[in-house]
Design a protein around this nucleic acid. Sequence first.
DNA 1: TAGATTGTTAATCGATTAACAATC
DNA 2: TAGATTGTTAATCGATTAACAATC
Lengths: 224, 224
Amino acid sequence: MSQPRVVSRSTLKRLPLYLHLLESLIDQGLQTVSCTQIAEKFDFDPTQVRKDLEATGAVGVARVGFRTVSLVIRIKEFLGWNNAHDAFLVGAGNMGKALLGYKDFDKYGLNIVAAFDKDTRKVGSRIFNREVLLLAKLPNLAKRMHINIGIITVPAEYAQGVVDLMVASGIKAIWNFAPAPLKIPEGIILENARLTQSLAVLTNNLTKILGEDGEIIEVEYCRR
Amino acid sequence: MSQPRVVSRSTLKRLPLYLHLLESLIDQGLQTVSCTQIAEKFDFDPTQVRKDLEATGAVGVARVGFRTVSLVIRIKEFLGWNNAHDAFLVGAGNMGKALLGYKDFDKYGLNIVAAFDKDTRKVGSRIFNREVLLLAKLPNLAKRMHINIGIITVPAEYAQGVVDLMVASGIKAIWNFAPAPLKIPEGIILENARLTQSLAVLTNNLTKILGEDGEIIEVEYCRR
DNA sequence: TAGATTGTTAATCGATTAACAATC
DNA sequence: TAGATTGTTAATCGATTAACAATC
């Protein structure tokens, strides 16, 4: 495996977009693609696409572009999506269920192998073919199965406790869906999937085009 | 209402964090807070917090700080969270259910009033006390109820069709959870809540600290 | 060869951070 | 008054964009 380079968060977030596009291009039978073509699809600057691809270590051919198939492989390897990481999910509520039911995570390097909850009424049931286990059993299982990824879908007030338990259980990367600021020790990776942030951008932009009474006062604004 | 200023996406995404903190400070009975105190909680630069608050139009008092209660009101107003926008959700699958079941959206300026699906088996049922209606009924209802926000939780291949339907129905802002690149006309606001982007950052960071065999090779890295 | 595209270096732009005056 | 904090202007940093040489 080639040495992973340090890459900006912005670049990392664009790579999945390219990946989706490339996979549909492959389905269409296209063998090569240029940065310009990719850029057009997303309204990005072609140089930005080139830099992003360069960051993954992908190499193109002048006048031809990048081979779609090897580019997909390269990006997946760079993102750690080539072989799936096993993960534990804590919090078998609505969001937990939604994630457990999401079929495509294996494509994205994620394999949720079990769910945990402290509610004994939920324990023992199965959600989308994954067992719901008592939260207290997480530490032993995580260590024995060498689980590196933990997903948090509990209410905000319990999130820090779950983080501490996960860290003590050897989990190295935490994907947090709870709207709570979490403290983690050095060396642990925390990624917040905060819906409220995305919603804030949406509603703020909406208020800009709405008048006080909810009527449209201006429709110049366009977000892409 | 004061004139909303143009503000960076980064600032907009930090505001909900401040809001959560402020609400817990208010619960604790604190009447004022300084930018430095807020910054410490999130490990941000105090000047950044000050600029963020300034962008909302909030005014502080030298040597004292900002009044917690009025700051919350100011931020909410700026984000458009002071009175909730009615929204329609399309796609009564797992993610749709999870969003319908999320109790706190009214705090975040969002009120999902109905769900739509093209699957007639789902139509007529109720999910978290909201009716599931036939997708074909969306245009008329959206116009009649002056719905401005649409939420998309359908599979990727149907997302563009739903966007087009929403736009034709007078919906101005779209919150998209489908992993598909969507085309929208000028003047329509599109906000993508893409889980895969967040996941990409997580797994890439994880591969950096994992060796090829999945063993930890380095634990220097820390993301906050 | 000609020209499209890659790869790379330089310029621009915007966000973050630093410095400092004004204020209560 | 003294000093912490706001508000504002300047400097820095990093990402994006532009320019251009190398390549097939």
